[in-house]
Structures are given as C-alpha cells and as structure tokens.
Amino acid sequence: MTGQVRTLVIAGNGTNCEREVANACLLAGAEVADIVHIARLLAGEVRLDDYHFLNFAGGFLDGDDLGSAKAGVNRLQHARVAGTPETLADQIRRFVAAGKLVMGVCNGFQLMVKMGLLPALDGNIQQQTASLTFNDGGRFEDRWVYLRVDPASPCIFTRGLEGLYLPVRHGEGKFVVRDAAVLQAIEAQHLAVLQYSDERYQAPVMDYPRNPNGSVAAIAGVCDPTGRLFGLMPHPEAYVHRTHHPRWTRENDLPEEGMGLWLYQNAIRFVREQLL
C-alpha cells in the first residue's frame, strides 16, 4: 500500500453516477479514484484489498428488478471471484474489518442496506434489518432537499457539519425498518445521520415534499456504529461546485465548493490520518 489515498468506485449493471463520484473523490484530495466494472472484480483483475475507500454509486442496478438493488446484492453474495473460493461479499467484509471506509449513494445505499452493511447493529454486517421501498407518492422524485445532520452521530463523513442541501433522484427511497426495536436502536446509537428537515436544518419533517418519500423518522442516511460505513439517498456527488446549485445564478454568496464535497473531504482526511 502506497502513501496515496486510493478510492474505488464500482460500476456496471445499471449504475450511472460513477464518474461524478470519482470526480468528487479527486476534488476532495484522493490521488487515485478508479472506476472499475464489477466484471473485473469478479474476474480477479482488481482487488478491494488495494484500496482505502469503497464507493457504491447510484443508478438503476439491474433495472431495479426484484426491488431496489436486490439483484446487485445477490451478485455480490453468490458470484465467486475467479480463481478463489471467495465472493465479493467476502472481500467487502475483509475490507470493513481492516478499518476502511465504505459509502453508498442512492442505489448504493439501497445495496448496502439490503446486504446488511447498514445499519449493522451490534457490528453484524451480514443481517438485513432495514430496507428501502417505494416512495409514498408512488412516483419518481427529482428535487433538492434539506438535511439535518445529527451532531452526536459517530459518522466519519459528516464530522463538523450541521446541515446539507442536496438533490434526490429516486423512486424507491423510503427507509423502513424490520421492527420498532431496530428503529429504537438506530436512534439510541445516533445512526440516523441525516434526516429530511426544514430549511434551517433544525427539525426533521414528515410532510411532502420536504420529505420526498415518507421515510420512517424522516431518515435520509444512516451509518454503522463505527461511523465508517455510510449510506444516503440524496446525491452528494451532484453538488461539488457552486454551479451545481439550482440557484447559483441568483445567490452570489455561494462558496465555490458544493456541500456534497464536504462528505468526501472528511473521508479523505480520515484515510490520511488513520490508514496511511
């Protein structure tokens, strides 16, 4: 492993945001941001072990057949890596055990939840306890939302942040849990990192359109108890420069950096401080 921050973005089978995610990683300071088709990982040409920060980009994995990202999860869990007895899920679990970072956006968040990587209560990254399902409105939502950040969350990616303004683009973004005990544990451990909120980032909201999908407890993003695994439905990679803001021609005081970039900067900073 070199002194460079090496990030990996998995592509293929319907993802369509991999270039934006790789660009965000580079803008945040990573020296390497490789976009790798999942077929190359399954062929054993590329190994997760050689990277510090794994990204599951958004898109429409397998056309969202079987539900959001479920087919993609099956591929990770059951397809063998050529020349080895392991699956990509085995590599991901080893990646996590090594103290590295994983982030999933939109379809990538759905994948992490259905795989059991999130919320990973009690450190169990193999048991699914939550899911993402159809928006309450029954339609695809493409809009910008305000997000409250839980300051008590262990999440590496949101350190020092109070609120975010990001776009959502999804038809299945409603976060649901297996039972009341799961929600209680998520809230008790402050794993609900992001909640759809009012314009001042003060209070979670359940009313449409500020909450675009009806997520339980207004949850828009969650992390695991270590704070190193993080997923969210909104797209931070879609706001990494002021010109990405929907009102950039009318609000002259916008900073050059978009709010979404802050998440990637926190991730790269963690890698430099803890993993190099």
Rank of each mutant, 00 (worst) to 15 (best):
T2A: 09
Q4M: 11
V5F: 10
V5Q: 05
V5D: 03
L8P: 04
V9D: 04
V9A: 08
I10D: 01
A11M: 08
A11P: 00
G12D: 05
C17A: 14
E18I: 04
E18L: 06
V21I: 11
V21P: 00
N23K: 14
A30G: 04
E31H: 08
V32D: 01
A33Q: 03
I38A: 05
A39M: 07
L41S: 03
L42V: 00
G44D: 04
G44A: 09
V46D: 00
V46N: 00
L48Q: 02
H52G: 02
F53G: 00
F56T: 01
A57M: 01
G58P: 02
G58Y: 03
L66D: 10
S68D: 06
A69Y: 00
A69T: 01
K70H: 08
K70V: 13
A71H: 00
N74D: 09
V81P: 06
G83D: 12
T84C: 06
E86F: 10
T87Q: 10
R94K: 13
A97S: 14
G99M: 09
L101C: 03
V102I: 15
V102T: 12
M103P: 00
Q110M: 03
Q110T: 06
Q110Y: 05
V113L: 07
G116N: 12
I125G: 00
Q127Y: 07
G138I: 03
E141W: 03
E141G: 07
R143H: 06
V145W: 11
R148L: 14
D150W: 03
S153I: 01
S153Y: 06
I156H: 01
R159H: 11
R159Y: 01
G160A: 07
L161F: 07
Y165W: 13
Y165N: 07
L166G: 02
L166A: 07
P167K: 03
V168F: 04
R169D: 04
H170Y: 10
G173A: 09
K174T: 01
K174I: 04
K174E: 11
V177N: 05
V177A: 15
R178M: 10
D179F: 09
D179K: 11
V182D: 02
V182Q: 03
L183V: 01
A185S: 14
A192R: 01
Q195H: 13
S197A: 15
R200Q: 15
P204G: 08
Y208W: 14
P209L: 12
V216E: 14
A217G: 12
A217S: 15
A217W: 08
A218N: 07
I219R: 02
I219P: 07
V222I: 15
P225G: 07
P225S: 12
P225R: 10
T226R: 03
G227A: 10
G231D: 12
M233Y: 08
M233E: 05
P236Q: 10
P236F: 09
A238M: 14
V240G: 06
R242Q: 12
H244M: 14
H244N: 15
H245V: 12
W248S: 14
W248C: 14
W248K: 03
T249P: 06
N252G: 13
P255M: 09
G260V: 09
Y264F: 15
Y264V: 06
R269E: 13
V271A: 13
L276A: 08
